[in-house]
């Protein structure tokens, strides 16, 4: 199977280039990560992040034939050849497929992604009905792989101002939590033309999310809640 992979080591290369690889004996059981690991066994300078191998740690986001995804849960069979693999777009490249995710993490931290409760703590758990808990499904499962934010044109243009789909999904995850008591502060901090409202519902985020989550819907929910609080 043929692969065309983005290579760039700023220490050695003047500019990035695409390197062609030919991998024999690819079978239908293999994921793209398995193929990359075999290529790395042949050329150990090929550089990418990976860890759990089953789509839960979020390390191996990359651009596969023009679409962001996790290599460990992308079957190689069915990918158009040569399989073109590039780093996730819009972030500075450190080396090969490894990008600098600082801006992505900064935006995540900026939405205060933690439960805020002002009341005194009871000695037992907070009560939450199964229906209230269900509001968190589709939100808490985010693995921070960055596939969504780095496929979002609004995030490409304004990675320093626009929170991006991943961070906004987490903003909604806490707004939607019946235990949280910081609704007003959370909404205030998302006001203004950039942080939330740069989302133009292009929906690339939802289209590529490897966990099947829907940041566009979460962003819509934040906007709706904002309107409700204003009236």
């Amino acid at each position: 199977m043929r692969f065309s992979i983005y290579r760039f080591n700023p220490e050695a290369d003047n500019e990035p280039y695409m390197q062609e690889f030919d991998l024999p004996d690819v079978n239908s059981e293999m994921m793209l990560l398995d193929a990359l690991l075999r290529l790395k066994a042949m050329d150990e300078t090929l550089t990418f992040r990976h860890s759990c191998g089953e789509g839960v740690c979020g390390s191996d986001g990359m651009n596969i034939n023009g679409r962001n995804g996790l290599s460990c849960i992308t079957p190689v069979f069915g990918l158009k050849e040569p399989v073109e693999i590039r780093p996730m777009p819009g972030l500075p490249v450190i080396r090969d497929l490894v990008v600098d995710m600082s801006q992505f993490y900064h935006q995540y931290r900026s939405v205060k992604p933690y439960l805020v409760v002002h009341d005194p703590e009871p000695e037992v758990e907070y009560l939450q009905t199964p229906e209230q808990r269900e509001q968190l499904d589709g939100l808490y499962e985010c693995i921070l792989c960055g596939c969504c934010s780095t496929s979002c044109p609004s995030f490409w243009w304004n990675p320093d101002y626009f929170r991006g789909p991943a961070a906004l999904l987490q903003a909604w995850r806490f707004l939607a939590d019946s235990r949280d008591q910081a609704t007003a502060e959370r909404l205030d901090s998302l006001d203004g033309p950039y942080r939330l409202f740069r989302c133009h519902t292009i929906m690339n985020c939802t289209d590529v999310c490897p966990k099947g989550l829907n940041p566009t819907k979460a962003i819509g929910n934040i906007k709706k809640l904002m309107l409700k609080q204003m009236t």
Partner: peptide, 12 residues
């Protein structure tokens, strides 16, 4: 639970 872990819930 108090720091936000989204445990599954019983009817009560």
């Amino acid at each position: 639970d108090h720091i936000g872990v989204p445990f599954s819930r019983l009817d009560n």
